[in-house]
């Protein structure tokens, strides 16, 4: 009796697994593989040469710089916002939650345009800034601003449900035992949220390096100065330089893969993370 029931259950499980695998192979693995195949169509030397091109190097530097600034900013903001929302009651809390979701809800192109409308030469504060030699859009600060805007929900969104489930009990205990606010945060809250935080930071970083739409609007596309890797890929592609385009794409893909591998390694070493993610889900 028992054995007979197990067979259809297993079949169902394999069927589901099969669907998931085929789906992932067709939609994710194959396109990713094609990126690498195309990058090496002419061999290793053109591949390396196109990566050592000064414009490609400048694009990589800018992409790394953008992520290096916007990810820490969003880390601080995400913790602060999640902390405020999960641990305190105040008027306008729902408004704040909605505000955090805005970058996910609106198109990245609009995220870029709002900065043009603010800091552009025809915008609100743009004329005054430009008069004083300060350039925000069509320069590096605009790219960082737009990227930060587009990626700020990632950390907060990871942390809010986690912190809400955890509740205030441990913090209240710590405070009642005489810990200061900072000690409570460092010794109680942070260890509790660290895996969710890490996951949020990884997602935030992946998007910060890959963002195209918002950055494209504020970039000005100055070669060697304001092109990020995704923009550089598009330019190479429309220059009919396919090796260059796919070589740069392979670097971007590899940056993402490194992020994922780092996450997997951490998960393997720390079963807590899996538990943490499972709890959020």
């Amino acid at each position: 009796m028992i054995g007979r029931q197990q067979v259809p259950e297993e079949l169902g499980r394999y069927a589901l697994l099969g669907i998931a695998l085929v789906y992932l192979t067709v939609l994710v693995a194959l396109p990713l593989l094609i990126v690498f195949v195309e990058a090496f169509t002419r061999g290793l030397v053109p591949y390396i040469a196109s990566l050592l091109d000064p414009y490609a190097l400048a694009a990589m530097r800018l992409t790394l710089l953008t992520a290096a600034v916007s990810v820490p900013l969003n880390l601080i903001f995400g913790i602060a916002a999640a902390w405020a929302i999960a641990k305190f009651e105040f008027r306008g809390k729902n408004t704040l939650v909605t505000l955090i979701d805005i970058p996910f809800a609106i198109s990245p192109v609009i995220s870029g345009l709002i900065y043009v409308l603010m800091f552009g030469a025809q915008g609100w504060v743009g004329p005054w800034l430009i008069e004083h030699g300060i350039h925000i859009i069509f320069a590096v600060p605009g790219i960082i601003l737009a990227t930060t805007f587009v990626t700020f929900p990632f950390v907060a969104r990871e942390l809010i449900p986690l912190m809400q489930t955890q509740g205030n009990d441990e913090e209240e205990t710590a405070l009642s035992l005489g810990a200061s606010g900072w000690q409570t945060f460092r010794l109680v809250t942070l260890p509790n949220i660290r895996w969710g935080l890490l996951y949020g930071v990884l997602l935030c970083n992946a998007r910060a390096m890959g963002e195209f739409g918002a950055v494209s609007v504020v970039s000005g596309h100055i070669r060697g100065l304001t092109n990020t890797l995704p923009l550089h890929i598009e330019i190479m592609y429309s220059d009919y330089n396919y090796v260059g385009a796919f070589a740069a794409a392979s670097i971007l893909a590899m940056l993402a893969l490194v992020t994922l591998v780092a996450k997997t390694l951490l998960e393997l070493r720390q079963p807590e993370l899996r538990a943490g993610i499972a709890r959020q889900a």
Partner: peptide, 13 residues
């Protein structure tokens, strides 16, 4: 945000 943008703006000019 604006402060960050301003200091960045000077550096990037």
């Amino acid at each position: 945000l604006i402060a960050a943008a301003l200091s960045g703006g000077y550096l990037a000019a």
